[in-house]
Design a binder for these strands. Structure first.
Lengths: 138, 138
DNA sequence: CTTGACCCTCTAGCGACTACAGGGTGCATA
DNA sequence: TATGCACCCTGTAGTCGCTAGAGGGTCAAG
């Protein structure tokens, strides 16, 4: 048997919080590990590899459902690699869409900011841009 | 007295879902409106203006807490406009950070994709990039 | 008098965690 | 042996900004 890791060590090794690991177990992303006599979770190097995979995919912005799909693909070596490419391409498109949205937002905010010349709220051009009648009693 | 709006009309006029309006009321973003005999919410044009303000700010990506702050500022005409500028500047910086993060992500994903040459999962370069030992039994 | 569109309250769910509260374990040190 | 401390356990509730549903009431038209 290979050496076992306590949850804290696994957390440290993968840059994950302990609670997050327990949560991944709860939602079925990692299997419930063996337990010690004192009921501590005891993880194997395989668990370390799986969690590293998960974290890497999460860092790349994949959702947990997408991670699940990637794990399924990864554990089935005969499967067509095209599915992985597809998933990644879809995710890339999503990221592109978010960047475009944020860039449009950024432009609007920048325009708003150029209109601020100080003074009081009553003649604030930023607030003006928010609606026809901004000031209103509570 | 000005004409009153039912919640559905207010929703339509502001592009908001009915449930969202009730939720804004619950979290104190808009005041509980008058009620009709049948216990229906009856909104004034002032409410319409306030909700429009809220939606506009939300569309610009401000959080509800930030919207609350903006509303507080907007209802206090003597206040220094600089606070509004500050809030907006901070938000813009946040948006810039998100764009930078997503752009870095995008680059990584694009690199990953160029490495896919088809074939089976066992020699998939994308999955390889996810960890030292990707394939693992459940 | 019934149909249908609208409204009401209350509760639970989404994603992906995070943060307790209230306890047990294991090891070192006095 | 006692005690302190770091670590672990379970379970629940909170975060953000809604969204969806159950189970009912209101109102105007046909």
């Amino acid at each position: 048997m290979a050496e076992k890791l306590q949850i804290g060590k696994l957390a440290e090794a993968t840059g994950t919080k302990v609670e997050t690991i327990r949560w991944y177990e709860k939602v079925g992303l990692i299997a419930p590990p063996a337990r010690t006599g004192g009921n501590y979770r005891a993880y194997s190097p395989d668990d370390l590899a799986r969690l590293s995979f998960i974290r890497r995919a999460r860092d790349l912005g994949f959702s947990l459902d997408q991670v699940r799909a990637l794990l399924d693909l990864a554990t089935d070596p005969g499967r067509d690699c095209g599915s992985v490419d597809e998933l990644t391409t879809g995710h890339l498109a999503e990221v592109d869409r978010k960047i475009a949205d944020l860039t449009a937002l950024r432009r609007e905010l920048a325009i708003l900011l150029t209109s601020c010349r100080g003074g009081t709220v009553s003649d604030c051009r930023i607030l003006e841009a928010f609606g026809p009648s901004t000031a209103q009693a509570e």
